[in-house]
Measured scan of single mutants.
Amino acid sequence: MSGIALSRLAQERKAWRKDHPFGFVAVPTKNPDGTMNLMNWECAIPGKKGTPWEGGLFKLRMLFKDDYPSSPPKCKFEPPLFHPNVYPSGTVCLSILEEDKDWRPAITIKQILLGIQELLNEPNIQDPAQAEAYTIYCQNRVEYEKRVRAQAKKFAPS
């Protein structure tokens, strides 16, 4: 494992614990031996107030490669969400998460999670990743928002 990646992720964890947006979660997972795995984080993004996503808490896994922060983490909703920019596998399609697009090593975990929260309610229809959600979003916004509200209710924190 890269010392650069681990040191950056340790800084990220410290900064997150000191200050993070209300309702968001970002925690490194534990290895079988109980030690912390900084390369694999369990996160959760709350649906934004005043949107059909409100009330939901959407679980996301963030996986970092050894060359982080040169390369972005892979962000994957578990379980996958109904959304035009979420692949059926759950992987998020967002330009700041793509090395050859808008990724920059200075982007923080907090910025990534806030960017994904923004994307939930403002899909990028130029870059669809899920045919069904994309089609319904474009053709029947009322039905799309109904499905999103049902999903938010399903993923409401207990």
Rank of each mutant, 00 (worst) to 15 (best):
S7N: 15
S7C: 09
L9P: 02
A10V: 11
Q11R: 13
E12G: 03
A15D: 15
W16K: 07
W16F: 08
W16D: 02
R17K: 12
K18Y: 04
H20R: 08
F22Y: 10
F22L: 04
G23D: 01
F24S: 00
A26V: 03
V27A: 04
V27H: 12
P28L: 07
P28S: 05
T29I: 09
N31D: 04
N31Y: 12
N31R: 07
P32S: 14
P32T: 12
D33N: 07
G34C: 07
G34I: 06
G34V: 05
G34D: 09
T35P: 04
M36T: 01
N37D: 14
N37S: 13
L38P: 09
L38R: 01
L38V: 09
M39K: 06
M39V: 13
N40S: 13
W41R: 01
W41L: 04
I45F: 07
P46L: 06
K48E: 07
K48T: 09
K49A: 13
T51R: 00
T51A: 03
P52N: 15
E54V: 08
G55S: 09
G55E: 12
G55R: 05
G56F: 01
L57M: 07
F58L: 06
K59N: 12
K59I: 09
R61W: 06
R61G: 08
M62T: 08
M62I: 08
M62V: 11
L63F: 12
L63V: 14
L63P: 00
F64I: 12
F64S: 00
F64V: 11
K65Q: 14
D66V: 05
D66R: 02
D67E: 13
D67W: 06
D67L: 08
D67T: 10
D67N: 09
Y68Q: 01
Y68D: 00
P69R: 03
S71T: 07
P73Q: 03
P73S: 05
K74H: 15
K74P: 03
C75K: 00
C75Q: 02
C75W: 03
C75P: 14
C75T: 02
C75G: 07
K76N: 15
K76T: 13
K76I: 14
K76P: 02
K76E: 14
K76D: 15
F77V: 03
F77T: 07
E78V: 15
E78G: 13
P79L: 10
P79Y: 15
L81N: 00
F82H: 07
F82K: 01
F82N: 01
F82S: 02
F82L: 02
H83R: 01
P84S: 00
N85Y: 01
V86E: 01
V86M: 11
Y87C: 03
Y87D: 03
Y87H: 04
P88H: 14
P88S: 14
S89L: 07
G90E: 01
T91A: 15
T91S: 15
V92N: 01
V92A: 09
V92L: 15
V92E: 01
C93S: 00
C93G: 03
C93W: 02
C93Y: 04
S95P: 03
I96S: 14
L97I: 15
L97S: 07
E99Q: 14
K101R: 13
D102N: 05
W103R: 00
W103H: 06
W103G: 05
R104W: 03
R104G: 04
P105S: 11
P105V: 07
A106I: 07
A106Y: 02
A106V: 11
I107L: 13
I107S: 14
I107F: 11
I107V: 14
T108Y: 15
T108S: 15
T108A: 15
I109T: 06
I109V: 12
I109R: 04
I109L: 11
I109K: 00
I109N: 03
K110A: 04
K110R: 11
K110H: 08
K110E: 09
Q111R: 15
Q111P: 15
I112V: 12
I112T: 15
L113A: 11
L113P: 01
L113Q: 05
L113V: 12
L113C: 13
L114I: 09
L114F: 10
L114H: 11
L114Y: 11
L114T: 12
G115E: 05
G115K: 00
I116R: 03
I116K: 00
I116T: 11
I116L: 15
Q117P: 06
Q117D: 05
Q117R: 09
E118N: 10
E118V: 12
E118S: 05
L119A: 02
L119G: 02
L120P: 03
L120Q: 03
L120D: 00
L120H: 01
L120N: 02
N121G: 05
N121R: 09
N121Y: 08
N121I: 09
N121E: 11
E122C: 12
E122G: 07
E122K: 06
E122I: 07
E122W: 06
P123T: 01
P123F: 03
P123G: 01
P123L: 02
P123K: 00
P123E: 01
N124K: 03
N124A: 05
I125A: 06
I125R: 02
Q126P: 02
Q126T: 14
Q126F: 08
Q126A: 10
D127G: 06
D127F: 05
D127N: 02
D127S: 02
P128L: 01
A129V: 02
A129G: 04
Q130H: 11
Q130L: 09
A131T: 14
E132V: 07
E132S: 06
E132L: 06
Y134N: 04
T135M: 10
T135A: 10
Y137S: 04
Y137N: 01
C138R: 11
C138Y: 01
C138F: 08
C138S: 12
Q139L: 10
Q139K: 10
N140I: 01
N140D: 14
N140T: 02
N140S: 06
R141G: 06
R141I: 09
V142P: 14
V142G: 12
E143I: 06
E143Y: 09
Y144S: 00
Y144F: 04
Y144T: 00
E145V: 12
E145K: 05
K146E: 12
K146L: 08
K146R: 13
R147S: 14
R147N: 04
V148L: 05
V148F: 00
V148G: 02
R149G: 04
Q151R: 01
A152Y: 00
A152T: 06
K154Q: 12
K154E: 11
K154A: 11
K154V: 13
K154R: 13
P157H: 07
S158L: 11
S158P: 13
